[in-house]
C-alpha cells in the first residue's frame, strides 16, 4: 500500500492522478478521493477506463466502486452492491430506471497519462 501516490498533483490542468494504471485490477473498481469528492474508478476487460460517482443514489452510501462489473447488451455496467441497480459506466444512467434523473451517477473525465490514471476535476 505504498508508493501509489504520484509525486504531485497537477491541479492547474484540472487533472488529478489517483493511482497507477497497473494498480487497477480489470473489472474491479476502486474508490478515489479527489478533493472532497468520492469517485469510483474502473478499468475494464478491454483496457478502457471509467470514472463515476462513488455514492449510490438509492441507498445514499458510498459503495459504487465495490459493485460487480459486467455488461448489459453492449453497455459496460456496474451493479450497486446495496440494492443491485445496474448503471451504464459510460453515461451513469441507471439501466433499471433510465428515465429517473435522481437515480443516476455523475460521470467524471478520466485518462491515462504516463502510466497514471487521472481524474478530471470540475471539468
Amino acid at each position: 500500500m505504498t508508493a501509489t501516490l504520484p509525486p504531485e498533483t497537477t491541479a492547474q490542468t484540472g487533472w488529478t492522478a489517483v493511482c497507477r494504471y497497473t494498480d487497477l485490477q480489470p473489472e474491479r473498481g476502486v474508490a478515489a478521493l479527489v478533493g472532497d469528492q468520492q469517485i469510483a474508478v474502473f478499468r475494464l476487460f478491454d483496457g478502457s477506463l471509467h470514472a463515476v460517482g462513488h455514492r449510490d443514489p438509492v441507498s445514499g452510501a458510498h459503495v459504487i466502486a465495490r459493485g460487480l462489473v459486467g455488461t448489459r447488451g453492449d453497455a459496460p455496467t456496474v451493479a450497486s452492491p446495496m440494492y443491485k441497480q445496474v448503471f451504464d459506466l459510460r453515461t451513469g444512467v441507471c439501466l433499471d430506471a433510465p428515465d429517473d434523473s435522481a437515480v443516476r451517477l455523475p460521470v467524471h473525465p478520466v485518462r491515462l497519462r504516463d502510466g497514471w490514471v487521472e481524474i478530471g476535476s470540475g471539468g
Binding site: 475494464l44 460487480l68 462489473v69 459486467g70 455488461t71 448489459r72 447488451g73 451493479a79 445496474v86
Partner: peptide
C-alpha cells in the same frame, strides 16, 4: 457472451 453481470459472476 458479454462480460457477465452481478447474477452470473457470483
Amino acid at each position: 457472451r458479454g462480460r457477465g453481470c452481478d447474477i452470473c459472476k457470483p
